[in-house]
Amino acid sequence: MQKTTDEFIDTVEIEQPIVCDAPNDQIAKETLIGSNLKYLVVGIMFGIVFVKAEIISWYRIQEMFRLHSFHMYGVIGTAVVVGIISVWIIKRFNIKTIQGEQVVFHNKQFHWGTVVGGFMFGLGWAITGACPGPLFAQIGSGFLVVIVTLLSAIAGTWVYGLVKEKLPH
């Protein structure tokens, strides 16, 4: 447990793994459409930004890994700084969700996959020009052949699930 989190005694800290790496921690019951439409709206906003800032561009990814442009570093860096400040504010002022619930945070655990899987994803990211989010956005922006890439990514996830126990963690 980090020292900083002890200061916020109201903040709930749960160790991973819960269910998945990006879990739903809401306690209040959710309806399929009514509760989830707001995530569709946030997703739409995300998709628009992806296109308008050219984050889903294969060229921009090439440019980033050739150190020819600051653009992608600026996007990721700003997002991280805004995220850090936001999470700090939520913890510091114990801001509740709109359902009135405590915001739950999870610790990410380090294992061999962090290194090996991370490196492997990096290789794939550079060649497809997409992380998982942009895969969906590349399809939406009309590059329908990326459906094949997405299916292959789903297959990759599936194979990971299949061989998980045999891999070093």
Partner: peptide
């Protein structure tokens, strides 16, 4: 498409997240 996509899907899950889950959400939570 096929090899690249596979590495994205396998790698992110093995790593426990991608650019959003690790780089943005994870680092935001220090």
């Amino acid at each position: 498409f096929v090899v690249g996509g596979f590495m994205v899907g396998f790698g992110t899950r093995y790593a426990g997240g991608c650019t959003s889950g690790h780089t943005i959400m994870g680092i935001s939570n220090l």
